[in-house]
């Protein structure tokens, strides 16, 4: 006689906690063949707003953590993901219908991508920043700094795990905090990834993951005055256009759909969440 399994309730991940949507809404998550998998929380704009508050509150600590520390924490995420990779393979298979081989490939790639980005934390500033040889008696240094709070939309309908990781990780490298909206149709891996984050020494609020409708949530985030960067990688053309226009009102940094690969890493993608700060100081013996 088979054992009756315990089903998991998928909730949101905000400020290090796993609340249900304040709206109380859920939506059916089904397999490609239409089989019911789970109820996912359908985040409202208020959940997104709360996530931004949590993300903003976390900026100071995460951005002022040493680069070494951020690298270790990000590597820890990879370790935890590795340890639970079977669960992710299973979830990806169920929700996307992928083969075990393809799902395994995706999970492994996501782990490796995290390791790759983890290694960038204490190298990026050296590579893109540095001393500027100005024509005067000044010490002049440019350093990259995080823009602040990023809102990222994971790819929709493909790359369900790696696309999410590829969107979140580059923002974390330099010390941004993130509000991420998962693949709407297959949110299970995303919420399990939230559990990985929650157990990886990532301070609460640094990563917040929502499940729900991009069309409903994204415009609120694009127009939110306390969001600094929006990654519209997972938005369709119509939504991306509307969001980019909204983002213009506060001159947010915008990543357009197709600008970066959803499965590989990119140094430029780290740069999309970065401000260059240049400091001048007078220099003399007298």
């Amino acid at each position: 006689m088979s054992r009756l399994p315990v089903a998991k309730t998928y909730k949101l991940f905000i400020g290090g906690a796993f609340p249900r949507s304040e709206s109380g809404r859920v939506y059916d998550v089904t397999s490609p063949s239409g089989e019911f998998i789970a109820n996912a929380s359908k985040a409202s704009r208020k959940d997104a707003r709360d996530a931004v508050v949590a993300a903003r509150a976390a900026v100071a600590k995460w951005s002022s953590a040493t680069a070494y520390n951020r690298g270790q924490v990000m590597y820890r995420i990879a370790e935890m993901l590795e340890g639970r990779s079977a669960q992710f393979v299973d979830e990806i298979q169920k929700s996307t219908g992928a083969s075990a081989k393809d799902a395994t490939t995706e999970v492994n790639a996501a782990i490796d991508l995290l390791v790759w980005y983890a290694g960038w934390t204490d190298k990026y500033a050296q590579v893109v920043g540095g001393a500027n040889p100005v024509a005067g008696p000044f010490f002049n240094l440019s350093v990259p700094e995080p823009s602040g709070v990023a809102f990222v939309i994971a790819p929709q309908g493909n790359a369900t795990l790696i696309g999410l990781v590829a969107a979140i990780a580059p923002a974390l490298v330099t010390g941004n905090t993130v509000v991420a909206l998962s693949d709407e149709s297959s949110p299970c891996a995303a919420m399990s990834f939230a559990e990985v984050i929650a157990t990886s020494d990532v301070p609460g609020g640094v990563v917040n993951i929502l499940t729900g409708s991009p069309a409903e949530i994204a415009p609120w985030m694009a127009s939110h005055q306390d969001v600094n960067t929006v990654d519209l990688g997972g938005a369709d053309a119509e939504l991306a256009l509307a969001c980019e226009r909204d983002a213009a009102e506060t001159l947010k940094r915008v990543i357009r759909p197709g600008q970066f690969s959803s499965t590989t890493g990119s140094v430029d993608r780290i740069g999309a969440f970065v401000e260059t700060k240049t400091v001048w100081h007078t220099k003399s013996l007298a």
Binding site: N132, V134, F138, E275, W280, T282
Partner: peptide, 17 residues
């Protein structure tokens, strides 16, 4: 802020972002 001047102000240079 993108440009910080310490003990000076309004300095510009082509090498300085």
């Amino acid at each position: 802020a993108g440009v910080i001047w310490a003990n000076t102000f309004n300095q510009f240079d082509p090498t300085s972002p």
